[in-house]
Computed example of a mutant assay.
Amino acid sequence: MKGLQKITLLGQLTTCLLVLSFHAVMAQTPSSYKYKRAEELTMIGKAFANKQFYHRIDTADYPDLPTPVKSLLTHSAGLAIAFKTNSTAIAAKWQTSARKPSANMTAIAFEGLDLYIKKDGKWQFAGVGKPTNDTTEAVVVQHMDSGEKECLLYLPLYDEVTNVSIGIDETGSIVALPDPFKKKIALYGSSIVQGASASRPGLAYPARLSRETGLNFINLGVSGNAKMEKATADMLAMIDADAFVLDCIPNSSPQEIEERTAYLIRTIRAHHPEAPIVMIQTLIREHGYFDQVVGNKTRDQNSMITQQIESLQKEINNLYFIKGDDLLGTDHEGTTDGTHPNDLGFDRMLQVIKPFLTTHLPIAGQIR
């Protein structure tokens, strides 16, 4: 019996040592890495080459923009850091504002990071940076091979970022990757464009469009405030874009649609005589099937934008229209809260929007 007890104790000790060894290997900490500031790498997703590295728009250049729009454009939705590295692990340090995630967003989407690495010629999800505080240091992915990898690290959708650094092995290298996306398509819209309620930053639909088409979609979602104001229209028209996609109807009242659509479209066309312009109806809000006020407003919004676009198409060339009836599918499972698409809903939106854009935008064929 004593011999059996010794064998049992020895086995237990061996198991404990193996477990401890496993955890020691797994518990690589961010401090084990050397860091490079994101400013030394490539920022993608910008409308302009502005002075504010982590802001989508330098709003000081557009003082007439509505105050909420200015604030929302400081959020880093659609921005990503592009780099190449041979490191076997990638870590990150990043700092955001003191804002806390909203009820319909994951913390990762709201103020976390999302890493994609190119594999077999396609961008593939590789890991996330989970936020813990306003300043976070975390390992995003580890235990990779030491070959050179092309990487995209997406920044938070709904928070202002002030600093980002990328961590790699002490013996590894990291260099800027040229922007992997071609041309420039300005995508202006609501919280849905900004990314609510994707589970990760890279799953916002402008980011998915870029990875899946190779075109450079610029995320200009301004949550709740895509109302086609004159100052916003003037700012959009100044973007040196090859095409414009307008998904702003969810935030605009029927009266605003009637009063503002023509100015927005005509202003863009005046500065971009040949650029395709695509307007998208609002998607059908799921709770509107029961809430009659919501349902009626959605119908009125879509009816009014249909009238406006059909009228404008008589005078403006290359103006296109995507209807919203089928954007979420038909099983009523495509939203988080009745309004904002979940990942399933965004996927269904892509099945409608992507083939339309690749068919109607001549630039889509130019990058193949």
Rank of each mutant, 00 (worst) to 15 (best):
129 G>K: 03
61 D>Y: 14
139 V>F: 02
92 A>C: 03
89 A>Q: 05
77 A>K: 08
50 N>I: 09
50 N>L: 04
51 K>M: 12
152 L>V: 01
36 K>A: 14
86 N>Q: 08
147 G>S: 10
88 T>I: 01
56 R>K: 13
28 Q>N: 08
96 T>Y: 04
129 G>R: 01
108 I>W: 01
148 E>Y: 10
74 T>F: 11
18 L>T: 11
103 A>F: 11
110 F>P: 02
77 A>N: 09
50 N>T: 08
80 A>N: 07
117 I>W: 01
22 F>K: 12
94 W>F: 14
39 E>Q: 15
147 G>P: 00
40 E>P: 09
63 P>W: 11
137 E>M: 09
30 P>A: 08
124 Q>R: 08
78 G>N: 07
79 L>R: 07
111 E>G: 10
79 L>T: 09
125 F>M: 07
139 V>S: 07
99 R>N: 15
93 K>C: 03
89 A>P: 01
113 L>S: 00
136 T>P: 00
140 V>S: 00
56 R>E: 06
114 D>V: 02
88 T>Y: 02
127 G>F: 00
59 T>M: 12
112 G>F: 06
119 K>F: 09
131 P>F: 06
136 T>I: 04
16 C>Y: 14
128 V>M: 01
67 T>I: 15
78 G>H: 09
23 H>W: 13
111 E>K: 14
59 T>F: 11
85 T>P: 00
91 A>Y: 02
24 A>C: 13
74 T>M: 14
81 I>L: 05
36 K>P: 03
43 M>I: 14
33 Y>S: 10
140 V>Q: 00
80 A>L: 02
115 L>S: 01
124 Q>I: 02
93 K>P: 01
84 K>A: 08
23 H>S: 15
67 T>C: 11
150 E>L: 06
149 K>W: 04
58 D>S: 07
116 Y>I: 03
80 A>E: 01
122 K>C: 09
65 L>Q: 10
75 H>V: 08
59 T>K: 13
105 M>V: 07
49 A>Y: 09
82 A>H: 08
148 E>W: 13
